[in-house]
Design a protein around this nucleic acid. Structure first.
Lengths: 329, 329
DNA sequence: CGCACACCTGAGAGCGCTACCACCACAAAC
DNA sequence: GTTTGTGGTGGTAGCGCTCTCAGGTGTGCG
């Protein structure tokens, strides 16, 4: 601020201005070790008089700390990065990381790519990794150097702690609501079948149907609206008496509703529709979508915080999912 | 990979393994300066045999380059960071930055806060700033040290180049479509009035209405669905004969449609609704939303690339917005 | 033969910071 | 008086990398 030259202000400048050594200035600004009240005051004053901002890069280098948190999303191709769910995750992580001087990078991790993970483990500028939508083989391939710096959002494993919504609980809540509403021939549009965390809601569906003596009607989806619409039509073709459709995501459910409307099928009169996620648009769809909550931002925040803190975390952290009953079911 | 100790592989290790100096190894791996074919091969082989990954932090320090790109979103409070639009921006930026070893941080920039900007300018670990939804005063407060490293998404200024969708063009396209459909009493739900890039669509609306001899009916919104719904009701109360509503965002439009449905007003039969953004859910809403495209990811990609490249960019880059006619209008 | 001009290489000086270590002053304990 | 802290301080060795510079070796040309 005061420097006539535009040369950035360094710790040396502050130390000199305060009449102390660089070591003392570092101690004061870093808030560790001893420093007299006098020194603290002089350094503090000099620092904000000069507009000193510590150089995160230099600090990270000497401390051996990373400056990037990588969000690695597994999937068959790079289009998995286009999912609004990923957007939300990245955004929440970037918000948590900002005050720590850490930035977030987003990468696609091919399903069969331990190589990509190894590179992340060997990269000293990476302070942590958030594995998203990953599978057991990928989790098993996590290199030792990454242990403790990586958490999974979704599928977990003994080696990698996981953060996720209670998929089974959320599915259960919506399905019971459907059942309580008198629906007895409930089809489900799933997420990608290779995604084991998504399979938990499929399992919940299957168990509930069997327990209630109801038919199991599964159609594969991929969380997108377009695929959801096609899946709904497919379900109706295979089982014309279907009176409810449970979709594994709200986007899927919205696609389902649109497809049903296109066929002149009334929701919820003819077919009830339930979703999962409670995205902002669920409340304003027509009809308003009955769904279960998925606190994506909170999950990402917790996961990023865990990595940033570096403290050990429990192997599984499940966030509760609660029913939001609206009009569609 | 081969190292028995888990000590990370450094350039020194590679150089030693290849039997050359660190300088030569650096030249080969950095791809600059001269290096014999022999040296190139030996260094390359050693590098991937040892699993060498350059330490971005050290490189950034010596080069004086930053490792973070900050997305700073202006607004009256921190809730502006919850907007899916911001999520999309951050995610796209994070994707572009990843291969460059740069991470993205997300911050809220209070509307009256040049201080926050100055700190970013003095921070040597910040390689660039993406200013989002900002205002002229903020733009004027951009410190000299940040010039050339900052671009704006939305409002621009002589000092800061901007990237944005052609707001006026998109608004125009939707409004003309409304007019062509026979609508003559068209109300508009705006974005936040302090946001000058959003005001461009308001201006387009006003000009078109005046040119066509139609009444100007403005209600203030804030891009959210909830506010859109309230705004629609307000418009209908003030001007009961309104036959079309143009919303400044798709989220707003979805809220408008939900509110109209709640009042038993048919869309588009009684009131036509047009939006702006063409979010994924616009295609599956009921009725499907007529809107104009807003290539958010492309804009963010271009903006981030511009900052990363560091080359001068034209003062204004406008991305075309095209009409997507669906059912709601 | 000498000179210019390629191509190629290694030594080494930092980038800005942290943290280890040695040191000093002074007070309390022996 | 000596020992043992204990608060406070500065010197300085790096963290891993880039890049300048000085110094090679070879080839073409006057």
């Amino acid at each position: 601020m005061e420097t006539p030259t535009s040369r950035p202000v360094t710790l040396d400048d502050v130390a000199r201005a305060a009449g102390v050594s660089r070591a003392t200035a570092s101690r004061v600004l870093g808030g560790y070790g001893f420093a007299s009240v006098d020194a603290r005051e002089r350094v503090g004053a000099a620092a904000d008089r000069l507009g000193y901002v510590p150089n995160i890069t230099a600090r990270a280098l000497v401390r051996g700390a990373g400056v990037r948190l990588v969000v690695a999303v597994s999937g068959t191709d790079a289009t998995v990065l286009d999912d609004p769910y990923v957007d939300r995750l990245v955004s929440a992580a970037a918000r948590v990381c900002a005050p720590h001087g850490v930035g977030v990078a987003l990468e696609w991790l091919p399903l069969d790519a331990p190589a990509g993970l190894r590179r992340l483990g060997d990269d000293r500028s990476v302070c942590g990794v958030l594995l998203v939508n990953t599978t057991a083989p990928v989790l098993d391939a996590v290199p030792a150097g990454l242990r403790g710096r990586v958490v999974s959002i979704g599928t977990g494993s003994p080696a990698v702690p996981s953060f996720d919504v209670d998929n089974a609980g959320g599915a259960d809540a919506v399905l019971r609501h459907l059942h309580a509403g008198g629906r007895r021939r409930i089809a489900m549009v799933t997420g990608p079948r290779w995604l084991s965390c998504a399979e938990r809601s499929v399992t919940a569906y299957q168990e509930l149907m069997r327990a209630a003596g109801l038919p199991v009607r599964l159609v594969t989806g991929d969380f997108t609206a377009a695929r959801g619409g096609r899946a709904a039509l497919e379900a109706l073709t295979r089982w014309p008496d279907t009176d409810a459709i449970y979709a594994a995501s709200d986007a899927t459910a919205l696609g389902v509703i649109a497809a049903l409307r296109g066929r002149g099928i009334r929701v919820p009169h003819d077919v009830a529709v339930g979703g999962f996620d409670d995205i902002p648009y669920a409340a304003v769809s027509s009809p308003a979508l009955t769904t279960a909550t998925h606190p994506v931002a909170r999950i990402a925040t917790a996961a990023a915080t865990a990595v940033l803190d570096g403290r050990p975390v429990p192997p599984v952290t499940a966030f509760p999912s609660t029913l939001v009953a609206r009009e569609s079911a």
